[in-house]
């Protein structure tokens, strides 16, 4: 018997979060204010995502938590254990076996199904925040659909760098209405925002929840002569040989040695188990 209510939060708090999630689903891409609670972890460690996950979990769920694609980093492990202890839910590292996936800054490589919910941890939910610091003004800009400033920002990128240099948290327009911050996922993941799964975004410190229903149109902002491009490092994975997955660059020595590995650890492991090999895979014993 755990000493906490099911999924940690009290029922009144969960109802408040659930109402915010439902309004978020009804208005795709719009940031719904909610009364974010203090959680037993610091802001910046996924308190928004944790509250959304807590409001969604049922005892029958299987939870997966990833941090930059990895199941085995501190943030992912501690959040997974948190819900094991407070909600007694099953957990998994397999994308295909999870019914709820909480993520920090990645979308799993394996396409999600309609019976899955993807919960994002969001640091700064307001895509216009670094262009206009006042909440009263950005709220007005969303109300008036006044997004010219965002295009100026992307244009200045082109003027300065020759291309749109924004590589993560790349702004999108949802169903032709709201400009939304997809959280700091690499822009490689932006095309996956059009998904069969329900996608929920929680920003704890900033007290906002927003959502993308399944099969919602999500367009990355761009220009006709500088179309959006989902870029990645031009290498195959050194462990599983995948050529279409998002890669992390890992420095291996002091002499400039480096390797590229899939950021999605479950995807990479599954491929290696299926016999795929990369440049630096351990040599197998000759038969």
């Amino acid at each position: 018997m755990s000493d906490y209510n099911f999924a940690y939060l009290d029922e009144q708090t969960k109802r408040m979060i659930r109402r915010a999630i439902l309004k978020g689903i009804a208005i795709p891409g719009y940031q719904v204010p909610f009364a974010s609670r203090e959680m037993p972890m610091p802001y910046g460690w996924g308190t928004g995502g944790v509250q959304v996950t807590a409001a969604c979990l049922t005892p029958d769920d299987t939870l997966k938590v990833i941090d930059q694609g990895a199941d085995d980093t501190t943030n992912a492990v501690s959040i997974r254990k948190f819900f094991q202890r407070t909600a007694q839910v099953a957990t998994t590292e397999k994308t295909g076996k999870a019914s709820v996936i909480q993520t920090r800054h990645r979308i799993p490589e394996e396409p999600l199904r309609e019976d899955q919910i993807l919960v994002y941890q969001v640091p700064i939910p307001e895509p216009l925040r670094f262009l206009e610091p006042r909440e009263t003004e950005t709220r007005k800009m969303h109300a008036l659909e006044e997004y010219g400033l965002m295009h100026v920002k992307l244009y200045e990128d082109i003027a300065r760098h020759g291309h749109i240099a924004t590589a993560y948290a790349y702004p999108v327009k949802v169903e032709g209405r709201y400009v939304m911050d997809p959280s700091p996922i690499p822009k490689f993941d932006n095309p996956k925002l059009e998904s069969a799964a329900i996608q929920l975004f929680g920003a704890g410190r900033e007290q906002r929840i927003y959502a993308i229903p399944p099969f919602t149109r999500v367009v990355s902002l761009d220009f006709e002569d500088h179309p959006f491009e989902a870029s990645k490092a031009a290498h195959p994975c050194d462990l599983c040989g995948a050529t279409h997955s998002y890669l992390d660059e890992v420095i291996t020595d002091d002499a400039g040695g480096r390797m590229f590995v899939c950021s999605d650890t479950d995807y990479c492991t599954t491929r290696q188990e299926a016999g795929h090999r990369g440049r630096l895979s351990p040599q197998e014993d000759a038969a």
């Binding site: 999924a7 969960k14 229903p213």
Partner: peptide, 19 residues
């Protein structure tokens, strides 16, 4: 069992509204 039944109720409401 309020926590479990409310959670199941919410998931039905979420799924219906999202689809």
């Amino acid at each position: 069992q309020a926590p479990q039944q409310a959670a199941a109720g919410f998931r039905a409401a979420l799924s219906a509204l999202a689809r």
